[in-house]
Nucleic acid binder design. Structure first.
Lengths: 159, 159
DNA sequence: TAAGATAGTTCCTTCGGGGAACTCACTGGC
DNA sequence: GCCAGTGAGTTCCCCGAAGGAACTATCTTA
């Protein structure tokens, strides 16, 4: 966890970073997404310190990204599952994958492929405008102040 | 900078995190994107430590995300500009904004609005499939091993 | 000549990550 | 009954990275 908290800034990037900006968090999210969702599985898969993993899972649970589910009672055993907003956050991972595939995969090509269930094809994500449906990229936009500009940090309900 | 480097993992998420996963990096990118692109401007705007800012800018330049441009010769003065891949990386910021606006903006609403130049409307990004053009989200995909799976880390040319 | 702007660098302190060992609760095998 | 094994963490120590303030260097303007 970085020393300076970002959650109080009037910036949705900073607030999002406050939730998953710490080292390891996006990789933990990725693992839960693909079904590696128990403590020891995640730990071994990533090679992360158990201490840091415990901290991150706690924070992701408090932030409403994952939830702990008990799959055995008598030896109490847990697994982690994505919430709705957690699954939406995985969209962010798809965009990271796209950029990494394009610029960092090099000669061997992408390590992982994604098949879109709707069409059955191997593909990747593209960004479109929610209004006109045309492609929309960072270079195609103007930035304007919104209603929440300079507002005090909202009290977000996690549930 | 986190202690464990992610760049060697066979995972485009980890590799992307290696470039902009450190605390502050996405916010620095955001500032350069909106035109806050000189050292002192960025430092004051973010309240970041000058030491950390210098380290991050150096790393982002080495990674080919930004480039240092001299805008005055006699007192040597520099500003930072996005490269092509840097601008593409800003697409990631748009998705972070979308998620943060949706889940963390609360009552005051989004702090910043984005106008799509092509249609002139305030909008946000949506993810579509590059093949069939239909919406594509994390819940709509299957994950398959790709050609670069388990490959040694590629030697990426930064230029 | 002094003040101001720009772009860093250096130094010190403190906090967070890494890693290994330890705990605790239960289970299944002999 | 006893012992090893599993799952899910917790505790401990060390070291490196973040914060923050002060310092440097160069040139311009008053």
């Amino acid at each position: 966890m970085q020393r300076t908290r970002f959650g109080d800034m009037a910036c949705s990037i900073a607030r999002t970073l406050d939730v998953i900006g710490e080292p390891w968090s996006p990789l933990i999210l990725r693992n839960v997404f693909v079904g590696i969702n128990r403590f020891d599985q995640i730990q071994q898969s990533l090679g992360i310190s158990r201490k840091v993993l415990a901290e991150r899972l706690k924070w992701l649970a408090e932030s409403g990204i994952v939830e702990q589910r008990r799959y055995s009672d008598h030896p109490p055993r847990f697994e982690y599952a994505l919430t709705g907003r957690g699954l939406e956050l995985c969209d962010l991972l798809l965009v990271m994958v796209r950029w990494g595939d394009r610029w960092l995969a090099g000669e061997p090509g992408p390590p992982v492929l994604y098949r879109h269930r709707a069409c059955g094809q191997i593909s990747h994500v593209e960004l479109h405008c929610s209004v006109c449906d045309q492609p929309m990229h960072a270079g195609d936009i103007d930035v304007l102040p919104g209603p929440g500009a300079e507002a005090p940090p909202p009290n977000v309900d996690v549930a």
